[in-house]
Design a binder for these strands. Structure first.
Lengths: 133, 133
DNA sequence: CTACAACTTAAAGTTGACTTTAACTCAAGC
DNA sequence: GCTTGAGTTAAAGTCAACTTTAAGTTGTAG
C-alpha cells in the first residue's frame, strides 16, 4: 500500500514535520518523491516507524536507532554489534525504570500526604506530620 | 552543619555549576555568600536538594519543582494546588513508566533474538526468524 | 484562468537543563 | 609579596529533538 505524509502523520500521531525530519537525518530511507514534490510511503516505512516508536519508548537516541537500522542491513556481519547495543540499552532502560519507579513512589507519598493535609484544612483539624503517611 | 559547594557537589554527585544554576533559577534559596564571594550551605539546603533529586526522578520539570516549594511555604493556603500538582504528576509519571516498560520489553525481545542470531552466526547454522523468539 | 489546498524546501528558532568561558577575588602558604 | 587553589560572575554555548518560518510548487475545482 501507499500512504501520504498526512496519512502517516495521523497513523502515528506525529506531525508531518517530524516525519520529514526523520527522513532528513536518515531514519527513514528510500522515500519516493513523486513529481519531485510529494512524498509517498509504503509498508516498509510503516514498519520502520513502528520500530522507531518502540525504540524511542526505550529512550534510545535517534542516532542510535539509525545505527541499529544500518547494522540490520547486514545482520550476519553485525550480530555482535547489534547484540552489544541492545544489551547496553537494556541496562540503560532498566536503570531509567528504577529511577522513575523511585520518583513515582515519592510523588505517590506526596499525594497521600497532601490528601490528608487537604482534609485537615477543610475540617479545621490539626495538620498531619510527614511521619503519619 | 555548614557545607561548601564542593562538599555538596560530592554529596549529590552534581557539578558545582549545576548547584549554582539551581540557585540562579530560584530552586535553592537563602544561600549565604560569606565575604561576598563564597557560598555556604546548611542542612535545609541538603533537604531541599534531596527533594529536588526525588522530583527530578519523577520527571517533574525544574519550574514545577520550584512552584512546589513556593506552595509549600503556605501549605494551608495551597493544599489544593499542591494536591492537584502531585496528582497530575502521579499520572504523568505513571504514563512515562508504562511507555518505558513497553520500550524495555521491546529491547529485551531484541536481546533474546540477537542472542540467537549471534549463536547461529558462530555455528554457521540457519538464522532464527523473529517468530522464534 | 484563478484560487486554493496540500504539499515542498532550507534555514532559523525553540525548549529545558545544563555547561563552558573568560575574567576576576580571596585566603593561605612559601 | 607572589603563587596557588578554591571559589566567584555574567554571558554565551551546547545538546537533542523537534518546530516554525517564509517562500515556492503542483493538481484540481470552479
Amino acid at each position: 500500500m501507499n500512504y501520504s505524509i498526512t496519512e502517516l502523520s495521523k497513523m502515528f500521531n506525529l506531525p508531518a514535520s517530524t516525519i520529514r525530519y526523520y527522513e532528513k537525518i536518515g531514519l527513514l530511507e528510500n522515500v519516493e518523491h513523486i513529481n519531485a514534490y510529494r512524498r509517498v510511503y509504503d509498508d516498509a516505512h510503516i514498519d520502520r516507524l513502528v520500530a522507531i516508536e518502540c525504540f524511542k519508548k526505550a529512550l534510545l537516541p535517534l542516532d542510535e536507532i539509525k545505527r541499529f537500522f544500518t547494522y540490520e542491513k547486514d545482520i550476519v556481519a553485525n550480530s555482535d554489534n547489534i547484540l552489544n547495543m541492545m544489551k547496553a540499552q537494556e541496562e540503560a532502560t532498566t536503570k531509567a525504570m528504577k529511577n522513575l519507579d523511585d520518583g513515582l513512589k515519592h510523588v505517590q507519598k506526596k499525594v497521600r500526604y497532601y490528601t490528608m493535609v487537604n482534609e485537615a484544612v477543610k475540617n479545621n483539624t490539626p495538620l498531619p506530620s510527614w511521619e503519619d503517611v
